[in-house]
Design a protein around this nucleic acid. Structure first.
Lengths: 353, 353
DNA sequence: CTGTTAGCGCTTTCAG
DNA sequence: CTGAAAGCGCTAACAG
C-alpha cells in the first residue's frame, strides 16, 4: 500500500503544541511539561498553557506521540471469527473497557489459522499496539505466546498460556463435567458429546470434563459418542443422524453452540424423536435459540461480558504495570470464570429402550 | 492516558530504512524511492536496495509513515452495537476486504448515541484514519455526515447521506413492502409491525414500505399496530401481549430481529396462540432462531456479507480516488441491496375471528 | 523552574 | 539519476 498524502479535501490547519506554547507565552518544552504534568512547571505557566490549550482546542497528535514514545494507545484483538456471536459480545465488552481508558481497539480475524494469526500479530506489532488479546487459534503454542509476550503485553482468552502467562479462561472442564453429571443423575448413560476441535483448549477441556464425570461413575467412555470437529452444521446433522440411528443410540446430547445444536435438532426432526421424551439436550453456550426454542433448551452458560471485562482489565494492568515491582509477574496469572447449567425443559430421564 | 516508553521488555533494535540504505550502499533518499518506486532509480540501485531490504527483513514503520504522509493505513468503523450479530457479520466482511488491501480496522460502539458517535469520530480522525464507515445512529444528520466527508472519506451503512454522499443501503422499504404484501395476499388485514426507532433510516423505510403495501390495497393503516421503538425484548413481549389481548387483535406480526421475535414468541406462548394457525410471523433479518425454530419462521433476509464487501469496496475507492478526476463524485453515490422473503412455515391464512 | 536542542523513521523537495 | 537536508509534532535530556 503506497502512502501519499490524501486527495486532500480541505483540511483545517492542525493546532500544534507549538501554537499553544506561543499563545501561552512559554517555550515548547514547558508547554509539553504542563500538558503532561511531566516535570516542574510554575503555577502561572501551567495556567497559561491550559488556558491556551483550551482556547485553541488543542489536541495532541497521537501519531507524533507514538513516534516519540513508541506507544500507540491502541490494543489489538484477534479472534477466529468476529462474527461468532460469542466473540462479538466479548469484544464489545473489551471495547467498552478499553475505551474508558482512552485506548482504541483494532480487531482481526484469524479464521483459526496459525499463519493468519502470525501475520496479523506482526501487522499489529508494527503498528506498535500497546497490547494484544488473543483468542484460541489452531495449534495453540504456549511458546509462541510466550515469545510475543516478551515483547508486548499479551493476554490470552480461553487459550493455553505458558508458565506465568496471562489469560482469562472459562472453566469449560467443570462446565462439561457439571452438564454430564446432571445428565448422569437423570439416569442417562449414553451421552453424546459434540464439541469443537480438541486442538483448542476449550475443546480439550470439555472432553476432559465429560470423561471425568463418566469415569467418576465407573462408566467407560465410548469414543464413538464423542465428536470433536469444527462446528459445521451439516456435519453435526449427519453425525447426529448416524448416532440416533444406531442400535445403541445415545439418549442425550451435549452440543456446542447453536450451529451444532441446530444440526442435532434437525436430526431429531428427521428421526421423529422428541425432546426431552426420547432424547435430552444440553447446549453449551447460551443464546437466543436455546432460550426461545420450544421446548426451551437447557444450556451451559457463562458470562461473556465478564470474560471481556476481565480480559481488558488484565491487559490494562499488564500495560500499566511497570516492571518496577520486584515481583515481576505479580499481576499476571490466569483468571478462571465459572459456568453454570441453566435448567430449562430439554432434559428428562431417558426412556426405557 | 499518559504516554511513556513501555516498561521496556527487550525490544529488538528496529531495522530502519537507513540500515537498508547503508547496506545497499546508497543514500537514504534513494532507498526510499526504490522501496516505494516513487521516483527515478537506476536498475542497479533498485536491485541493491531490494536485496538489502530482504536480507535485513526490513519493514517500514507505519507510524513514521503516518507522521510524514498524514495517512495511517487504518479505517474506522462505527456501529451502534458490535454485538449485534448482523453487524458482527457485516464487519467481518469489511475486515476481510480491507485486510486484503493492507488496511487495519479499528472499531467502536456508539450505543446509538450521537454524542458517543461524535466522540469516536473525533478520536478516529485524530488517529488519522484514512476512511470511516458509519452505521445508523440516533438522529441521523446528513449534514453531519457531509461535514465529516469533507475532511475524510466516509461511507454510510444504512444511514441517510446528504446529496452526493456515499453509502450502502439495504432496501428495507421494498423488503417491508414485500413482506406486507405477502401477508396481505394470504388474507391478513390486521398486520402488526414491530420495528426499530423510526429516527433511523431502516425503521423509517420499513414503516414506509408497510404503509405503501397497505394503502395500495386501499387499507387504512392502524397506527396502533405499529410499534417503533428500541429493540427491547421485554417491551416487545408486553406490547405483543397487549395487542394479542385486544378484541381486534392482529393476525400477523412482522418483527425486527431475534430479540423482538423472542418477545412475540413468548407472548404467543402465554396467550396460547399457535403459529401459524392463529398468528402468522415474519422475522426481519434472518438468523439461527428463525431458521431453527419450530415451526421455522419465514424471514426477510439480505446478504450481510455483500453489505460489508460493498461498503469496504466503496470506501476503498473513495480513499484511492484522487480527486484528479474532473467528475468529482464519480465513484460515490449509493448502492442499494435488495432483500428477499425466505418462505418457511410461520405464515398461513388468518383464522376466521 | 525554563528554554533550547536532538531526534523518533520516514518522504520529499532541491541541488548537484 | 542521486545525495543532502528539511521537517511532520512531539517528548526528554540538558543546560541555563
Amino acid at each position: 500500500m503506497s502512502r501519499t498524502r490524501p486527495p486532500s479535501t480541505e483540511t483545517p490547519p492542525r493546532v500544534t503544541i507549538r501554537d499553544v506554547a506561543r499563545a501561552a507565552g512559554v517555550s515548547l518544552g514547558t508547554a509539553s511539561r504542563a500538558l503532561n504534568r511531566s516535570g516542574p512547571v510554575s503555577e502561572a505557566a501551567l495556567q497559561a498553557v491550559e488556558r491556551a490549550a483550551k482556547t485553541l482546542a488543542y489536541a495532541p497528535d497521537p501519531i507524533a506521540q507514538s513516534m516519540r514514545t513508541g506507544t500507540s494507545g491502541v490494543v489489538g484483538v484477534l479472534v477466529s471469527e468476529l462474527s461468532n456471536p460469542l466473540y462479538a459480545r466479548i469484544i464489545t465488552a473489551i471495547e467498552k473497557r478499553l475505551q474508558r481508558e482512552g485506548y482504541a481497539m483494532v480487531v482481526g480475524n484469524t479464521h483459526n489459522s496459525k499463519a493468519q494469526e502470525e501475520l496479523m500479530v506482526d501487522l499489529f506489532r508494527r503498528r506498535r499496539v500497546d497490547g494484544l488479546i488473543l483468542g484460541p487459534c489452531e495449534a495453540e503454542r504456549p511458546d509462541y505466546l510466550a515469545q510475543i509476550a516478551r515483547e508486548v503485553p499479551v493476554v490470552a482468552m480461553d487459550r493455553d498460556v505458558g508458565a506465568g502467562g496471562a489469560g482469562v479462561h472459562v472453566d469449560h472442564f467443570h462446565g462439561s463435567y457439571d452438564a454430564t453429571r446432571y445428565l448422569l443423575d437423570l439416569g442417562h448413560t449414553r451421552i453424546a458429546l459434540m464439541t469443537s476441535d480438541s486442538a483448542l483448549r476449550p475443546g480439550r477441556e470439555r472432553i476432559g470434563g465429560y470423561r471425568a464425570a463418566l469415569e467418576e461413575r465407573g462408566l467407560a467412555v465410548d469414543t464413538g459418542l464423542i465428536r470433536a470437529s469444527r462446528s459445521a452444521m451439516d456435519l453435526s446433522f449427519s453425525d447426529a443422524l448416524a448416532m440416533l440411528s444406531a442400535k445403541d443410540r445415545p439418549t442425550a446430547f451435549i452440543c456446542l453452540g447453536t450451529r451444532i445444536l441446530s444440526g442435532v435438532l434437525q436430526a431429531m426432526k428427521q428421526t421423529d424423536y422428541r425432546v426431552p421424551r426420547d432424547v435430552s439436550l444440553i447446549c453449551v453456550g447460551d443464546g437466543d435459540l436455546p432460550q426461545l426454542y420450544s421446548p426451551a433448551i437447557t444450556a451451559l452458560s457463562w458470562d461473556l461480558e465478564a470474560v471481556g471485562t476481565a480480559t481488558a482489565e488484565m491487559l490494562l494492568q499488564a500495560i500499566g504495570g511497570t516492571s518496577a515491582q520486584p515481583d515481576a509477574e505479580a499481576g499476571a496469572g490466569a483468571i478462571r470464570l465459572s459456568t453454570q447449567v441453566v435448567l430449562r425443559e430439554s432434559c428428562a430421564s431417558p426412556p426405557a429402550l
